[in-house]
Design a protein around this nucleic acid. Structure first.
Lengths: 179, 179
DNA sequence: TAGGAGGTGAACATCCGTGTACCGTTGTGA
DNA sequence: TCACAACGGTACACGGATGTTCACCTCCTA
């Protein structure tokens, strides 16, 4: 049941990053000793959760054809479905201090950044840097996950919300452009 | 020098929410004892930092004329300038567990939500709920603060980035609308 | 049925953050 | 010059989280 354990740890630590290992074990319905046996130290657990999330993203990313122009839509839609497991990765404090994790995260970003850069020739605006657009995408995902978590947003609505907002913005279509 | 102390505490706690009071005191160039004298407990310090940020927001919000249609632009521009002090407020984990703080945060959101709702008749799209638009604004601010902090974004560029992205999106103007 | 693997709870030592008390130093104003 | 307040530092007590060990249980299999 290692999978379920990691999922539980994800949600517990995401809700309260200072939660004790005892809390995590209890939430997972597992003895604290067992938890220690599988993850000798707290850092090990956190790293495992993060790597699990990265594996999840990899398994999704390899299904996306980054050569297609609508790859972003595809990717976003799939990422929204992953929910809190990925949110952990981008939100848990201090994760970037682990060199190995930082490398994996950068490796995860690269194909998306390349895609964005390529699309800036056609579908995406050129007056914003690629990294800014990437972070805007992530921010949209954050909002969706959080809203779903609070029960404000139906999971099936989420992809449309994110895509619409990120691509077209919140200004009404007919409104005069801002200066 | 209580002001400087709170600012330092803000940035230290924002970078690492689990930082010890000793770390905060050291960063502020102050004895841990002195810190304890001013803020008897850790919760007191966190609450003070949050309330300081809220005061800052209040002092900005009262300069904005929420009856004008471009109030959002004005507000965003001013909020971007506040930087990490406000970021703390929206990012520090567990802050919403304090009833008094939660009330103040809601009170802070309300005029903006009302403004958004009003503008949804004209400048803002009606197919997204007001709270979603509000969170999109906040997300844009996050991105700007973070990018400034990492030195990727010039502070003077930030308002334009946020406003452009949030209002018009990242799709190039000439591109066909997404379906 | 014996034995091993995996899980559990209890007990223990340890570390670290926290809060408090006490004392010495500095600086400021009466 | 004295009194007093503010500050810094040391030391100590306390509690909670952590990591380790050990004994016991259960299930599965040879």
């Amino acid at each position: 049941m290692s999978v379920h354990l990691l999922q539980t740890a994800t949600s517990v630590l995401l809700k309260d990053p200072t939660a004790s290992l005892g809390d995590v074990a209890k939430a997972a319905g597992v003895g604290r000793t067992t938890l220690h046996k599988r993850f000798p130290t707290r850092a090990d657990l956190v790293r495992a959760v993060a790597n699990d999330a990265l594996d999840l993203i990899d398994s999704v990313a390899c299904q996306v054809d980054f050569d297609r122009d609508d790859a972003i839509e595809d990717l976003i839609t799939r990422l929204v479905a992953l929910g809190p497991r990925v949110e952990f990765l981008l939100r848990f404090p201090g994760l970037e201090r682990d060199a190995e994790l930082r490398t994996r995260i950068e490796a995860m970003d690269r194909p998306v950044l390349d895609l964005i850069t390529r699309l800036q020739g056609t579908r995406l605006r050129r007056d914003l840097p690629a990294w800014w657009i990437l972070h805007t995408l992530y921010a949209g995902l954050f909002n969706a996950w959080e809203a779903i978590n609070y029960g404000r947003l139906a999971p099936l609505d989420a992809p449309r919300f994110v895509l619409t907002t990120v691509f077209e913005g919140v200004a009404s279509a007919g409104a005069a452009q801002r200066t």
